[in-house]
């Protein structure tokens, strides 16, 4: 079983490699200084890969020294990850519909669905929180702060 440190090290290596690849693809101007726009990214990419390797080696050493990989550190993480992904999907859904439905309606729907998803019971209380919360946020942003929130296309005809 991979330890969290090993997974972190691996992620750093992948990220560093991708970043370094694009650093080498970087267009350089004839007027650029000797370091150039790709200079720092190349150094950062190499350092990221090197540190990722160090973290992986450290993790392997610890697993070897302790003889057993601690599988408990991943216990229950799959379910937690799915719960977080669900919440993220609701936020993305808001992002996708806000231009069509407008701010006030979208934020009320977001409040309602997120509260339901997090364990609130359906009922008048939920409706009140969604409507009251949306009205309050709309008042703060649109009336008090004067922010132009998306009006939505649905009701504009």
């Amino acid at each position: 079983m991979l330890s969290r440190d090993f997974a972190g090290g691996l992620a750093a290596i992948v990220l560093g490699s991708l970043y370094l690849y694009f650093a080498f693809q970087q267009r350089v101007s004839a007027l650029a200084d000797t370091i150039g726009p790709a200079g720092m990214p190349k150094v950062l990419g190499i350092l990221m890969i090197a540190l990722g390797l160090v973290l992986c080696l450290q993790a392997l050493y610890q697993t070897y020294r302790l003889k057993v990989a601690d599988s408990r550190q991943w216990q229950g993480q799959g379910r937690k990850l799915l719960r977080a992904a669900g919440l993220l999907c609701l936020a993305i859904a808001y992002l996708l519909v806000v231009s069509y439905l407008g701010y006030a309606l979208s934020i009320a729907i977001l409040l309602c669905f997120v509260a339901l998803y997090l364990g609130a019971k359906p009922g008048w209380q939920l409706g009140l929180v969604a409507l009251g919360g949306a009205t309050m946020l709309w008042a703060i942003f649109v009336i008090v702060l004067g922010v132009q929130m998306p009006a939505g296309m649905l009701f504009q005809g």
Partner: peptide
Amino acid sequence: PRPYLNAFILALIMSGIYSINN
């Protein structure tokens, strides 16, 4: 209840970040 609090915080974050530059 936590669900209401967290739903409100998420709505606040989403609204606040949009309001920076629309």
